[in-house]
Structures are given as structure tokens and as C-alpha cells.
Design a protein around this nucleic acid. Structure first.
Length: 880
RNA sequence: GGACGAUUAGCUCAAUUGGCAGAGCAUCCGCCUUACACGCGGAGGGUUGUAAGUUCGAGUCUUACAUCGUCCACCA
């Protein structure tokens, strides 16, 4: 039995009121929980956890795609779980708190680790709720009762477990290595956290004195590293320099003696052809040093000032040294020249300062075996990347993976569960890894924490109870189904989840990775505070409502490509929502109680209803196939177009004839059809625009408590009717022809005119449905002529297929103009005929093209020929 | 240096087994027609970056080139 419908639908949709009311209503009734469909197959999306202290931006708004998937699967009866949570975001959060301390006139080091962590937790408690509230504003139907935080107790324990297991498996090692060091953040960072871009710098040419006499010219972009040189290298095939191999160079200003070595790594063509080797501060040089057994000297402190190995320059900042050393060398006539040079400068993704390769002792995860295991499910199709092109990028990264530096010299994060004890003079001579401190005296705990992405990589299974493999949620909701995120974190996050998932659970953590693009402004420019083009999704939502923002984000792009957000489009979609609201209102106003739900059988429908039902069922089928291939944007656009271009202007306008008429049976049939169409479209649109659809649904007859859990529509082939569509198309073309003619002759829109029609094959339809002309182009009466009747006097005319329409325009007709119109029309039709005839005389086309395509050409040709005949008759009688 | 993406109307973008190139905004004309002026009707606007190729047929497939962009990579 249908739920009683609401009456007195408001003139406009009050999105603010509805959003505030509906979201808690859904949530309180448990609709966001998978248990709403207890017997359904599970469908799980782990939400990419936003930074716990972050603020919502458009990147988060793109999660709308996930909500669309979740709501869609829920309506399909699945136990849909969209699992939300937040990330502690080590560096980002620590930076925020450090800034707060700075504003208070103190600092992290001053307050100490314990106090700093207390302050950070406090900050997290204060700010932590903000992002969740903002995600709620976007209407996201995630199960908040299962919300997790990467540093909550359970997840922290899981992180420890994973670290310990990897250690026990021998996949974690600790040691001094050359790593990317961020002097601003005072921590090591991984390769991924370094972003290099081209910058204009100076290339410095100088003389490397040779002990045996003379000098080697060398070029560098970082003169300060000269102080740490332990060799000079030349190419053994280089005629200019090969005799120097084996001799000794003297480090400028330091007086240190270093070997001159030969290695074909050195490019004869580049720079001077001779290379200074600084193994302590350059990754390539480090490799050279291993090959040639060179000394490694670290000349830098962790804050990028120089240390005691830098002689007189100790204590100075690296960039000051660059200048000072150059000046000093110039004074000693050791410099040659400088020139402008463009090269890639590595900068910290977070801090922005130049990253320095620095020797330091860190924890590493050995990746080869883990990466290999993560390649398998993608290679074998058990995990599909959408769009597919990302698979190649994924392979390339994993196939060339470097060991992962997982330790960070931060305070905010998961502390590495390790202890050290002095042995043989090495303070870290003994290492213990475990959950609790080892027994015995003299152990000191590790200070470092883990890379934020270490815990993120466990997300799909850490959130559902792993390592307890019997946990109910782990059993039911792991593996997940879809992972949806921005393509910018494919390596940071997606690849690591697949690696960790495969390694620890032996299952792909999800079967589909859907990657969306970055949101940019309407001109495709990246958002940036300095450019002032930042759009706050909450501002947009406040102005237009959440639904238009969601719909715009979904329909503005295609998978994997960046989305340019144009506020004009949001405005347009807000108007669409208003349109749909009013469509619903019109239906609502024309209902009486006790309407039977469902549509009458196909045979009981009139032509317009057959047409709209055919169109609707085709729309459902198309939408389904688009959803199946993740083309949500196209699906949304097609539903919009159906409503705005077909249902509202044609069906509803025609329906008024029945609704305002006296025939009860037709009235009821029409009501049932229009209710069905609106109901179906509200269902189809619900995943995109949940608020408006849920609210509007109250105003039409329906079954069930809430649209959010209503059944997803299925296409019914019985209603597909090509003949009805063809007949309606002719009627619509006739209406358009009359409108055009009226406009052409500037007939006052309110002027009700008469139409005379020679109906050709359409006599029956025109007799039954001539009211459409009154409704749609303000024709007072239609008179059907016999098909051989002569053209009426003083009439404009239009030809549609084999029908001819005459509009008597007493006193308004301009014969010359009319002839020009008809001639122009004739040209169009002639061109059309010519092109189709051309195709049809081509034997290759007729033989090779599929039959329906050929048939369509034949049909269209016949129609055009009929039109041409009519036009010629008109031209003859009117224009001679 | 390698890989990938984009190039379609003035602007921003659609068009998925190859089958008559579409929207929004902007422009022009006309309408307050009892669901909607957050609306309705009509119009103009295109050699789909260039050049070849495959095909009966190419925005769509192939190759080369151009421009823009992204990612990866150890040239000081």
C-alpha cells in the first residue's frame, strides 16, 4: 500500500532545511549501516581517510563518486558499507601544532615530547570532529558507527603487529643509508615525498688542483658539497683527462688529498667532462663510492648547517657556504666561471625547502618480495584499475621499487616498537623489536615514528578487525570491493594497500580501483591560495545546496581526468534541481488519493504514454550499462536530458490535456504513468542528489519508508516501442515546424492560429492527438485535408515526412519570403537525398555495413524523397 | 631520456563494441502560456590540432608531427 503523500508542495526546494533534517533522519534510522540489507551481498568501500585536523576541500568532495556507488549498491539490495575514518597525518599535523606553539612563543623542543603529544591529542580532539561534520554536509552515507582513526588503540596495535611480523620475517632492516633529508622538518622523507621541478640555478665551473701539477676543470650546481668530496672522476676514454687517473686531487680550501678515478659513468660531453664525487650528499656519487670503495664524508648537520667535517665553514648554513666558499675560491684563483643552468631541484612535498641527501640511520622495509606479490593480482585481473592506463604506471613503479624508508624523526605518529642496547661500543649494538620493552637492563626505546602511509597501507583490513581473522567485520567486509581515490596517491596509498593486503591477508584488498582526477578551477588551473582561485565546497554548498555541487562534480569529468569545476555549471545544475522539483510539484498537484501504483500494461497506454515509457525504459537500460562501466557522469547527464528535454516539455505538456479533461480512465492512466516516470527518475538520481530526491519522493505516491532504501529501477523491455517513438517523433517534428514558422513570420505567441494539415500516413494519429498542437504551439484548431487537396491561399507551409502543414496567415504572408524559405528547405532536403543516395549506390556500403544501418539510410532516403515531393508541389503552386 | 593524457562551437566540456558531432555558459530574436522567468519557444555558431593510413564509413582505430599538461628517471 502506498504511503500517503504529502500535499501543498512548497514552491521551491528548501535545500538548507532539507539537508539539516534528512541527514540525521537517515543516520538515526540506520540506513547508512550495511545491516539495513542484512541478507544482501556485501559491498564495501574504504573511504580514503582525510587528515584528522584537516578542513574539507574539493578533493574530499570528489568522494561523491564513492557515495554514488554506495547509494546505488544499497538500493540494489547489497549490504553496502562505506567505511569512514581519519588519518593522523604525521607531518601535516605536527606542522600545525608546531605553528600553534610558535604562536604561543614556545616550540616543540622547548615543551618536550610528552607535552607536545598531549597538546597534539588535544588539538586532534578539538579539530578532529570538524572534518566529519563537513563530510556529513556533503550527504555522504558512510557508516559512522564504524569510523576509525589511524592512531586509535586498535589500529595502533595492528600497526605494531605488522611491523613486528615484517621484522620477524627479516624484511625490515636498520642502518645508515643515504636518504632524502628534509632540514626544515628535521626528518627523513621517502622518495615519494620529494617533488622536483625545474628551476634556474647557477652551474659553477672551477679548478680542481692536482697534486702532481695542473688542475682538472669541474662543474657543479652545489659548490658547498666540494667540502665533502672524496674523489674526482673522469671517463677513461676521455683523451683530455685519462692520464690523470690514478693521480691525486686536492680538495679546495680543505687541502684533503683524494683520488682521481676513471669510470665510464662520467659523461664526456657534459659540463667539463670531469666530475666531483661527494658520496655523502649525492645518490649517484654514493653508488660510485661503493664501486670504487671511496671514503664517505658527511659534512652536514640535520638542520643543513655544516658540521666539523667542513673545516672553517662549520656552523654556517649550506647556502651561505655556497656563496662564501665560492668567494674564497675566487680569491685563490680556483674558479673559472658560472653560467645559468636549468635543472630539477628536489623539494620537500610538505615543507617546500630543498631536500638534502644525507647519511642517516633509518628503518627500511625491503620491498622486492612484497611488490612482486602486489603485481600478481593486477596482472591476473583480480584487481582492475579504472581507467586502465594506470595499470602500466602501477607496474612500472612496483617493478622498479626501492626499499621504503619508514622511519620519521617526528613525534606525532606510531612509535616504532623497538629498543636498543649498547654492545661493543655501538649504542645500537643490540636491537629488540616487540610490543613491550625487553627484559634486562640498559635498553633505550626507539624515538622515531613510522611514515604515515605505513598505517594507511593497512586501512582496508585494519579497520575491520584484522589481525583477528575471526572478527565478524573482517569475515563479512573483507576484502572490500572498490577503492576510489585521486590518482595522485596511486603509489603513496593504493599500491601500498595492495602490497600490505596481499602480504598479510593473501587476498587483494579490493577488486576495483577507480581513480578520479584532480579538481581544478574552471580554466583548468590548480587551486592555490596564492592565486586566490580556491573554491571552498562548503561555500558552494551553502549557496546552491549540496546536491548541485555533487551533481556537477560527477558530470563535469570522466574517470582519471582532471575535473574543471565551473560555478556556472553548479548554477545550471541547481536550476535542474528546481526544474525537477517543479516537475514533481506538477504531478503532485494533479493527483487524487488512492492512485494505484505501477503502470498499466503497454496495450492500455495512449501514444504519448507509450512513447515516454519506451524512452524511460531505454534510459534505465542505458543508465545501468553506464553504471556498470563507471561512467556516472554520462549517466547523470542522460537522466537530466530525459527529464528536461523529453518528459517535461513534451509528455507533461501533453498530459495536461488528459489531466484537465473529463475522461476519468485516461486521467488515471496518465497519472499512473507520470508518477511512475517521476518515481523512477528520483530513484535513478538519488545517488547523485540524495537530498532533493528523498524530499521530492514524499510528494508522490510510493511504497516504503525512504527513497534511500528504495529499489533501484530495472528496465522492462515490454515497454520499448519503436513504432510509438517514431509516431511521436513525427508529431513532435510537426509541432517544431509550426513553431519555427510562427517565429519566422513573427506571429504573436498569444495569437491562436488554425492549421490545415494534409496528413499523409499520419491521419489516425493526427485525429487522435491533434490536441498537441493546441497545447504546444498554440493552434486553435486543426483541420485535416485530403492529401491531394490544393494548397490553401495565403498560407505558410511546412513539410514533415509525408505530411504538409498549412498555416493561413491572412495579411501576414510574404510570398517572396515564403518562396525563399521553401527553397532553402528544398536545398537541405536535396543535399540529404544526394548524400544518402551516394551511400546506397555504393555496393560496398550496402554489402558490408550492418543491415540496420543500411535500412536506416533507406528509410531516411524515402522520408526525404517524400518531403522533396511535397516541397516541390508547394513551390510550384506558390512561386511558379 | 622514457611513459601517459589532452587538443571538438567564442569559453568550459560531453560523445565506450567505428554508423547523421551534442550540452552549459556567452551571442541574437521572441514570450510573465494557470509546475517552474531558478522558466518557455526560436536562431546563429564546427574541415573534431596538423599530415598520412586502415575502413563502405573515423571525433572514435594506426603512424608521424605540433602544442599544452602529468608522472617516472642518477647526467654533475
Amino acid at each position: 500500500m502506498a504511503t500517503p503523500i504529502k500535499q501543498d508542495m512548497p514552491a521551491t526546494f528548501d535545500f538548507k532545511e532539507a539537508e539539516e533534517r534528512l541527514y540525521p533522519w537517515w543516520e538515526e534510522r540506520g540506513y547508512f549501516k550495511p545491516e539495513v540489507n542484512p541478507d544482501g551481498e556485501s559491498f564495501v568501500i574504504p573511504m580514503p581517510p582525510p587528515n584528522v585536523t584537516g578542513a574539507l576541500h574539493l578533493g574530499h568532495a570528489m568522494y561523491t563518486v564513492e557515495d554514488v556507488m554506495t547509494r546505488y549498491e544499497r538500493m540494489r539490495g547489497k549490504a553496502a558499507l562505506w567505511l569512514p575514518g581519519t588519518d593522523h597525518a604525521g607531518i601535516a599535523t605536527q606542522l600545525q601544532v608546531e605553528k600553534m606553539l610558535r604562536d604561543e612563543g614556545t616550540s616543540r623542543l622547548e615543551v618536550g615530547r610528552e607535552e607536545f603529544l598531549a597538546r597534539t591529542w588535544q588539538w586532534k580532539e578539538e579539530k578532529g570532529g570538524r572534518i566529519q561534520e563537513q563530510l556529513r554536509k556533503l550527504g555522504f552515507s558512510c557508516d559512522w558507527s564504524r569510523e576509525r582513526f589511524t592512531m586509535d588503540e586498535g589500529l595502533s596495535s595492528t600497526v605494531q603487529e605488522v611491523f613486528i611480523q615484517l621484522w620477524e620475517q627479516g624484511l625490515i632492516y636498520r642502518g645508515p643509508r643515504l636518504v632524502n633529508w628534509s632540514p626544515g622538518l628535521m626528518t627523513a622523507v621517502s622518495d615519494l615525498e620529494v617533488e622536483s621541478s625545474e628551476e634556474e640555478v647557477l652551474l659553477y665551473y672551477f679548478k680542481y688542483p692536482v697534486k702532481e701539477g695542473g688542475f682538472l676543470p669541474v662543474a657543479t650546481t652545489r659548490p658547498e658539497t666540494i667540502l665533502g668530496d672524496t674523489a674526482v672522476a673522469v671517463n677513461p676514454d676521455d683523451e683530455r683527462f685519462k692520464d690523470y687517473i690514478g693521480k691525486t686531487a686536492i680538495v679546495p680550501m680543505m687541502g684533503r688529498e683524494i683520488p682521481i678515478i676513471g669510470d665510464d659513468y662520467v659523461d664526456v660531453e657534459f659540463g667539463t667532462g670531469a666530475l666531483k664525487v661527494t658520496p655523502g650528499h649525492d645518490f649517484n656519487d654514493f653508488e660510485l663510492s661503493e664501486k670504487h670503495n671511496l671514503e664517505i664524508i658527511n659534512i652536514m648537520n640535520k638542520d643543513a648547517t655544516l658540521n666539523n667535517n667542513a673545516g672553517d665553514y662549520a656552523g654556517m648554513d649550506r647556502f651561505d657556504v655556497r656563496k662564501k666558499l665560492w668567494d674564497d675560491m675566487t680569491a685563490q684563483d680556483l674558479t673559472i666561471k658560472t653560467e645559468q643552468y636549468t635543472t630539477r631541484i628536489p623539494r620537500s612535498q610538505r615543507g617546500g625547502e630543498v631536500v638534502e641527501p644525507l647519511i642517516s640511520t633509518q628503518w627500511f622495509v625491503q620491498m622486492d618480495a612484497i611488490a612482486e606479490k602486489a603485481l600478481k593480482p593486477v596482472r591476473e585481473g583480480d584487481i582492475k584499475l579504472v581507467p586502465e592506463r594506470f595499470t602500466k604506471i602501477y607496474y612500472h613503479w612496483l617493478e622498479n621499487i626501492q626499499d621504503w624508508c619508514v622511519s620519521r624523526q617526528l613525534w606525532w605518529g606510531h612509535r616504532i616498537p623497538a629498543w636498543f642496547r649498547e654492545k661493543d661500543g655501538d649504542p645500537e649494538g643490540e636491537i629488540y623489536v616487540g610490543r613491550t620493552p625487553p627484559k634486562g637492563e640498559g635498553w633505550t626505546p626507539e624515538e622515531d615514528v613510522l611514515d604515515t602511509w605505513f598505517s594507511s597501507g593497512l586501512w582496508p583490513f585494519s579497520t575491520v578487525g584484522w589481525p583477528d581473522e575471526n572478527a565478524p567485520d573482517f569475515q563479512r567486509y573483507y576484502p572490500a570491493d572498490v577503492l576510489e581515490t585521486g590518482h595522485d596517491i596511486l603509489f603513496f596509498w593504493v599500491a601500498r594497500m595492495i602490497m600490505m593486503g596481499m602480504w598479510f591477508t593473501d587476498k587483494p584488498p579490493f577488486h576495483t580501483v577507480y581513480l578520479h582526477g584532480l579538481v581544478r578551477d574552471k580554466n583548468g588551473v590548480k587551486f592555490s591560495k596564492t592565486k586566490g582561485n580556491v573554491i571552498d565546497p562548503l561555500d558552494v554548498s551553502a549557496e546552491y545546496g549540496t546536491d548541485p555541487l555533487r551533481f556537477t562534480l560527477i558530470t563535469s569529468g570522466t574517470p582519471g581526468n582532471d575535473v574543471n569545476l565551473d560555478l556556472e555549471k553548479v548554477d545550471y545544475n541547481a536550476r535542474f534541481i528546481n526544474k525537477l522539483w517543479n516537475i514533481t510539484k506538477l504531478v503532485n498537484m494533479n493527483l487524487e488519493s488512492d492512485l494505484e501504483l505501477g503502470v498499466p500494461s503497454q496495450a492500455e497506454l495512449d501514444l504519448p504514454s507509450k512513447w515516454i515509457m519506451s524512452r524511460l525504459n531505454k534510459l534505465i537500460a542505458r543508465t545501468q550499462s553506464l553504471f556498470d562501466s563507471y561512467q556516472y557522469g554520462e549517466a547523470g547527464s542522460q537522466i537530466l536530458s530525459f527529464l528536461w528535454d523529453e518528459f517535461a516539455p513534451w509528455y507533461l505538456e501533453m498530459a495536461k490535456n488528459a489531466l484537465y479533461g473529463d475522461d476519468e480512465a485516461t486521467k488515471i492512466m496518465t497519472r499512473r504513468v507520470m508518477v511512475h516516470v517521476v518515481d523512477t527518475c528520483l530513484r535513478l538520481l538519488h545517488p547523485f542528489m540524495p537530498f532533493m530526491t528523498e524530499e521530492a519522493w514524499n510528494y508522490i505516491p510510493h511504497e516504503g519508508d525512504a527513497l534511500i532504501i528504495a529499489k533501484w529501477p530495472e528496465s522492462d523491455e515490454a515497454y520499448i516501442d519503436e513504432t510509438a517513438e517514431a509516431h511521436m517523433t513525427i508529431l513532435m517534428d510537426m509541432v517544431r515546424a509550426i513553431r519555427e514558422t510562427r517565429t519566422e513570420y513573427k506571429v504573436d505567441p498569444s495569437n491562436r492560429i488554425t492549421a490545415l494539415i494534409a496528413p499523409g500516413s499520419q491521419r489516425d494519429n493526427l485525429e487522435a492527438y491533434d490536441y498537441v498542437f493546441a497545447r504546444l504551439c498554440n493552434v486553435e484548431s486543426v483541420k485535416l485535408l485530403s492529401d491531394d487537396a490544393p494548397a490553401p491561399e495565403n498560407s505558410a507551409s511546412a513539410v514533415v515526412r509525408d505530411t504538409t502543414i498549412y498555416l493561413p496567415l491572412e495579411g501576414m504572408l510574404d510570398v517572396e519570403k515564403e518562396c525563399a524559405r521553401l527553397t532553402k528547405e528544398r536545398e537541405k532536403v536535396t543535399a540529404d537525398i544526394k548524400s544518402r543516395e551516394g551511400k546506397l549506390v555504393n555496393e560496398n556500403f550496402v554489402n558490408k555495413a550492418p543491415e540496420p544501418v543500411v535500412q536506416r539510410e533507406r528509410d531516411s532516403l524515402a522520408e526525404s524523397q517524400a518531403e522533396l515531393e511535397k516541397i516541390d508541389t508547394l513551390l510550384k503552386s506558390l512561386c511558379g
